[in-house]
Computed example of a mutant assay.
Amino acid sequence: MAATGDGPWLDDAAGRLVRPYTVSNGRTRPTTALDLLTQVMATGTTPFGYLGPEHAQALDLCRAPVSVAEVAAHLKLPAAVTKVLLSDLVDCGALTERPPAFHNPTDRSLLEAVLDGLRRQL
């Protein structure tokens, strides 16, 4: 039975009925270099041509700067598929991307801040 408001694309017992790589037309490589920490944001430009519902959802999530990882989590899609979708939106000018604000993801002070935040959540 489908959950209310999800339409035919989700099923309570089976989960997503459309395979993730169907969303990206089987493509596994984005045309724009994106990593999980890359920040993406909508430009306000209306994309031309057909975009699928996942593209529209991703664009809606990007009204404020957000990481690729966060978009993937909200869309409940693999990161590789999300990168392809976001890359499509960058290519048509609907999104802009920028590298993460920090350059060393293994910086000890950053990792300690993340650990402290996680401990506060528990």
Score class of each variant (00 low, 15 high):
L37T: 01
A14T: 15
R27H: 14
K76A: 14
M41Q: 14
L10C: 01
A13S: 04
L17D: 00
P65D: 10
A72K: 06
R16P: 02
H55T: 06
D11C: 07
W9M: 01
A79S: 06
V81Q: 00
L51N: 01
G26M: 04
A56T: 12
Q39A: 14
K76T: 11
V71C: 04
Q39I: 14
G7C: 08
K76W: 04
L75K: 07
N25G: 04
L89Q: 05
T28Q: 11
G7P: 09
K76Q: 11
T82K: 08
T31P: 00
P8L: 04
P53Y: 10
V68S: 10
A58C: 11
L37S: 04
L59Q: 09
V90K: 14
G7S: 06
C92F: 08
R29T: 07
H55K: 00
L86Q: 13
G52H: 01
T43G: 11
T96V: 11
A56K: 07
P53G: 14
V90R: 13
R27T: 15
A72S: 13
D88M: 04
V68T: 12
S87L: 03
C62Y: 10
A73C: 04
R29E: 06
G49H: 06
V71W: 00
A14M: 11
A33Y: 13
V66H: 06
T96E: 03
V18S: 05
D12G: 10
T31C: 07
G26V: 01
L89T: 09
R29S: 02
V23Y: 03
L51K: 07
N25S: 12
G93Q: 01
T22S: 09
S24Q: 05
L95T: 13
R16M: 03
P20L: 09
L37R: 08
T96C: 06
V71F: 03
L77S: 12
Q57C: 10
D35A: 09
L59K: 12
D60Y: 10
L61E: 03
Q57G: 03
A14Q: 13
G52D: 01
A33V: 12
L86H: 15
A42K: 15
L85C: 04
L85D: 01
E70L: 06
A69H: 06
V90T: 15
G93P: 07
D60P: 03
A14C: 10
L77M: 13
V18Q: 01
L77N: 11
D35E: 02
T22A: 10
G15A: 12
L34F: 13
D12L: 15
